[in-house]
């Protein structure tokens, strides 16, 4: 089984997680740019964070054989912060052209303010200009209203639905997204949001097509192995190997390949690992033998 984990914040995870992901069949991860748990107060911290996503974090993943991609964007929560919002937007064009950047995200709405809407729309324009799909974070509060507003803004921008992933969905939102022609994302959490069991019920009812599941694991209580765990529940529910492969590989790679920078055929297996390699002189090793297998 090969898995493309399409939403995970490895920046905030440890090397044990990379080991476990590789062991469970995750050969590639997509790391959306997001907020860091507290407000950033200058654009410089975004610059360094973006550089980490295309630099050290990518190297760290590769040291466990895992292909690493990311999306870049100004997250909706910090879009409200006038100390940084416009500066980050000004920064994005050059970062949206980096090789491992395969989409714009996470963008969308959180508190559903006018400022969020303004910068959400601006980033949809950037996605169109840089020929990239968009990963949309939908609100956790007042979800249905915010979900609908996200859809309205995408529609106002005339952005193609095939290039839209509406994430953090649930049993209610799927009724809306199925008819739009966009991709429906579900974040599977250990305690909140979707559980593997609830996810399987949605798949049984709505099918596999244009469905994407992820762990959205970050620095909070979350589990990076939620996609493999969902796969286990799917097997118990009678889904066959081809359906599972479509859900955890075919769908996410098809979506993120739309920007032309991700070749699914080139990332189907773990990378060869050479622990002698360093990134700007830094190694993930702490005294271990780099030649050890």
């Amino acid at each position: 089984m090969r898995i493309f984990e399409p939403h995970i914040h490895m920046f905030s995870r440890i090397t044990d997680d990379y080991e476990a992901l590789a062991k469970e069949g995750v050969v590639a991860v997509l790391e959306p740019a997001f907020w860091l748990g507290q407000a950033r107060t200058s654009v410089g911290t975004f610059v360094d964070y973006f550089d980490t996503l295309i630099g050290w974090e990518r190297f760290r993943a590769q040291q466990f054989g895992i292909h690493h991609f990311c999306t870049m964007g100004l997250n909706p929560r910090e879009a409200n912060d006038d100390r940084i919002n416009q500066d980050v937007i000004d920064l994005l064009p050059r970062y949206l052209e980096k090789d491992s950047v395969v989409g714009v995200g996470e963008i969308g709405l959180d508190d559903q303010t006018k400022t969020e809407e303004k910068f959400f729309a601006a980033q949809i324009e950037l996605a169109a200009a840089h020929d990239l799909p968009i990963l949309i974070h939908t609100p956790h509060r007042d979800k249905m209203k915010g979900f609908q507003r996200c859809i309205d803004i995408v529609r106002e921008q005339g952005f193609p639905w095939e290039r839209v992933l509406l994430d953090h969905g649930n049993e209610e939102t799927i009724k809306i997204t199925r008819d739009l022609g966009c991709w429906s994302g579900f974040s599977i959490y250990p305690n909140t949001k979707m559980s593997p069991e609830r996810m399987v019920q949605i798949l049984l009812e709505h099918g596999i097509d244009h469905m994407i599941v992820n762990s959205a694991a970050d620095w909070g209580v979350s589990d990076p192995l939620m996609v493999p765990k969902t796969v286990a529940r799917m097997r118990e529910a009678g889904f066959d190997g081809a359906q599972i492969d479509q859900l955890v590989w075919g769908n996410p790679t098809s979506f993120f390949a739309q920007g032309g920078r991700l070749d699914p055929a080139a990332i189907g297996e773990l990378l060869p690992v050479d622990r002698r390699e360093t990134f700007t002189g830094n190694s993930i090793l702490r005294g271990q033998d780099p030649n050890a297998k």
Partner: peptide, 10 residues
Amino acid sequence: IPVLFPQIPR
């Protein structure tokens, strides 16, 4: 140029 530059290798 800063927007062109990352595109060059691909």
